[in-house]
């Protein structure tokens, strides 16, 4: 009986905690007994670091550049708990097309039927940034990944990037592209931040899959080159990621989001800015409780 491979793409603004979330999700899924591949789609090639004790692995594109031809096995490295780690890598800064690089890497695996051969349950693409060029949209097009999760904080630029991604998903939704699974709300500490992402999710007709608080545990584990799941499996943060993994594993149905137009988004941001100011100045009560 062939099992159904679940392919997921994680998007979000740079620096928002995508790779941290992805690695912990991979580690948690693997702890739940799933066979997982984590595919870093970022020229920085540091997506899988914490799955491999902080060490970098040769990227698909570096290998391709040196050898001219690549066997998929040459670029798949084993990480924590048997997770298959891959980094697409990118060209030298300023030249070449990183998006094209991702396409090349993915095509290579498809051609060599690696997903089938490795008997994977789940492939997670950790994709850089918001959708800025067609290449980065590759995992959500052409039926590669079926589900997209976006990592977002309550920070406006992060919400903006998520909204942009939603536009991309909507654009490809009619041509067999991936649909949106939901938002992983990251760095959820201040009381108002939850309200902001909740409001954004409601406005764009999507949902929050998990609220991940900012945690010193994550920092400590990352400094050791490990995920929370590996280094602090009994921590509260690990429980949060395990819960996320269970939800992702059980997730079946993704939907087309309803992104806001730029003007709507600006108006939305302005409304929240006013509200935060009121909390701060004490015009409305509850500022202190909300962490302001």
């Amino acid at each position: 009986m062939g099992k159904k491979l679940k392919q997921i793409a994680i998007y979000g603004k740079g620096g928002i905690g995508k790779s941290t979330t992805t690695s912990n999700l991979s580690a948690a899924l693997s702890s739940l007994g799933y066979k997982v591949m984590q595919f870093g789609c970022d020229p920085k090639a540091d997506s899988t670091n914490t799955l491999r004790g902080g060490s970098y692995i040769p990227t698909v594109l570096d290998t391709l550049r040196e050898k001219g031809a690549v066997k998929a096995r040459d670029v798949i490295y084993e990480g924590f708990n048997g997770i298959c780690c891959v980094e697409s890598g990118g060209p030298a800064p300023g030249v070449g097309c990183a998006g094209r690089g991702i396409i090349t890497a993915v095509e290579l695996f498809k051609q060599q039927k690696i997903f089938e051969e490795l008997d994977l349950d789940c492939v997670i693409y950790d994709v850089l940034g918001d959708v800025v060029c067609g290449g980065f949209a590759m995992p959500i097009r052409e039926g590669i990944a079926r589900h997209v999760f976006t990592v977002s904080s309550a920070d406006f630029m992060s919400v903006y990037a998520s909204n942009n991604l939603f536009k991309g998903i909507k654009k490809y939704s009619n041509s067999g592209g991936a649909l949106l699974g939901g938002i992983v709300a990251n760095s959820m500490n201040a009381g108002y931040s939850r309200d902001i992402v909740d409001d954004f999710a409601e406005r764009t007709q999507t949902r929050i899959v998990q609220y991940v608080p900012r945690s010193i545990t994550v920092t400590q584990c990352e400094l050791k080159g490990k995920t929370v799941i590996e280094a602090a499996p009994d921590s509260e943060q690990a429980r949060v990621y395990m819960e996320l993994a269970e939800r992702v594993a059980a997730h079946e149905e993704s939907r087309t989001p309803a992104p806001l137009e730029l003007r709507e988004l600006q108006a939305w941001a302005a409304k929240w800015s006013d509200k935060l100011l009121e909390l701060e100045t004490g015009t409305v009560p509850g500022g202190q409780a909300a962490g302001i």
């Binding site: 594109l61 030298a92 030249v95 070449g96 097309c97 094209r100 690089g101 090349t104």
Partner: peptide, 10 residues
């Protein structure tokens, strides 16, 4: 061709 597109064509 693709190689130059990925790695730069200079």
């Amino acid at each position: 061709t693709e190689t130059e597109i990925v790695f730069g064509g200079a």
